[in-house]
Design a protein around this nucleic acid. Structure first.
Length: 310
DNA sequence: AAGGGAACCAACCGCCACGCT
DNA sequence: TAGCGTGGCGGTTGGTTCCCT
């Protein structure tokens, strides 16, 4: 009999995370930074194992995560890297800082693998390398010609941790926070249905969201999220904590590995240099994200990139 | 409108690597 | 050096959503 898995302990909750749990976890990490996961459940009172907390953070709550559809651009990168590295999702994810390894893995298993399998059985629509068997190298994502793709891949060798990311990179978390708030608000609405029914109806009609829409109208959504938060009658203190990132010590984020979180330095800088009123940081994220600076990461001119791996 | 299958994705599990004692 | 604890990674599962009939 081996040692029981950590999550088999009695009282450890499993299954989907609730918005309340998310808020608790985010609040805790804001104050202490990611890491020392062992102490997270005991210090927060979360009935989750440390591993579960870490996964929730890295795959869902961590700032800088982009969700939603993969662009042909990203698709090309993943396909090529998978052919080079194999199923090293963490390594692949390190070249797509906005994506988690889990996301990439899922996307590969559900989309790209099938596409490639198709490409192995059909020649239409794919450009074959001369004299070689079909492989991922032969697959060109829709909307992404070979020349573009070649250029895309050169991005991969760009020295991410030292690319001088602006604080705006952190704005990628807007969607996460917004989603979190919406979930929280929705949950709150359930709990306070009687009182808030009218409000909830109005908000729900307003917040039928997918992430693409979220990215496109993040300012709008932030207002929605804020309205929902204000409309809800519970956990206001949690919300305040969530929004007051100024309380966060700048250095705490640095505990995160640079490769995994290239935004850490920017975040530290922001925490250290910004002394603005509460809400300002969240708002700043929203503005920054709206300005599209994050996407520029993947649209850097070719001459800004380091030597290609080709 | 309802049922069933497919697709998607969050979360879990088991294993491994690394650091500390 | 061995043992232990912790964090990280990749594979897999199960619940939810979407789509078709």
């Amino acid at each position: 009999m081996g040692r029981p898995p950590c999550c088999d302990k009695v009282g450890i909750k499993k299954g989907p995370w609730t918005p309340e749990e998310d808020i608790i976890l985010v609040s805790y990490i804001q104050q202490h930074g990611p890491g020392n996961w062992r102490s997270v459940p005991s210090n927060t009172g979360l009935m989750r194992c440390s591993k579960s907390c870490r996964l929730r953070w890295t795959n869902y709550l961590r700032p800088g995560i982009k969700r939603g559809n993969f662009t042909p651009h990203e698709e090309g990168i993943i396909i090529h890297l998978q052919s080079l590295l194999g199923n090293k999702w963490a390594a692949i994810a390190s070249y797509l800082p906005q994506r988690t390894d889990n996301d990439i893995k899922n996307y590969w298993n559900t989309h790209l693998k099938k596409k490639l399998e198709k490409s192995h059985t059909a020649t239409d629509g794919y450009k074959m390398s001369s004299g070689t068997s079909p492989s991922c190298h032969d697959y060109v994502p829709e909307g992404c010609d070979m020349e573009t793709r070649k250029q895309d891949i050169t991005v991969l060798t760009f020295p991410l941790p030292s690319m001088g990311l602006t604080p705006s990179i952190y704005a990628c978390s807007t969607g996460n926070i917004s989603r979190l708030l919406e979930g929280w608000a929705r949950s709150s609405q359930k709990n306070t249905q009687g009182k808030l029914q009218e409000r909830a109806i109005a908000d729900d009609s307003h917040s039928s969201n997918n992430d693409a829409t979220a990215a496109a109208s993040v300012g709008e959504k932030s207002r929605d999220a804020g309205d929902q938060g204000r409309g809800a009658a519970m956990a206001h203190q949690d919300l305040e904590t969530l929004l007051s990132f100024e309380n966060m010590s700048g250095g705490s984020w640095e505990k995160t590995a640079a490769g995994k979180a290239p935004f850490a330095d920017a975040e530290a800088k922001q925490g250290g240099e910004n002394h603005q009123p509460p809400l300002s940081l969240l708002e700043k994220w929203l503005f920054d994200e709206a300005s599209g600076q994050v996407d520029e990461l993947m649209d850097l001119p070719v001459d800004c990139r380091s030597l290609s791996m080709f």
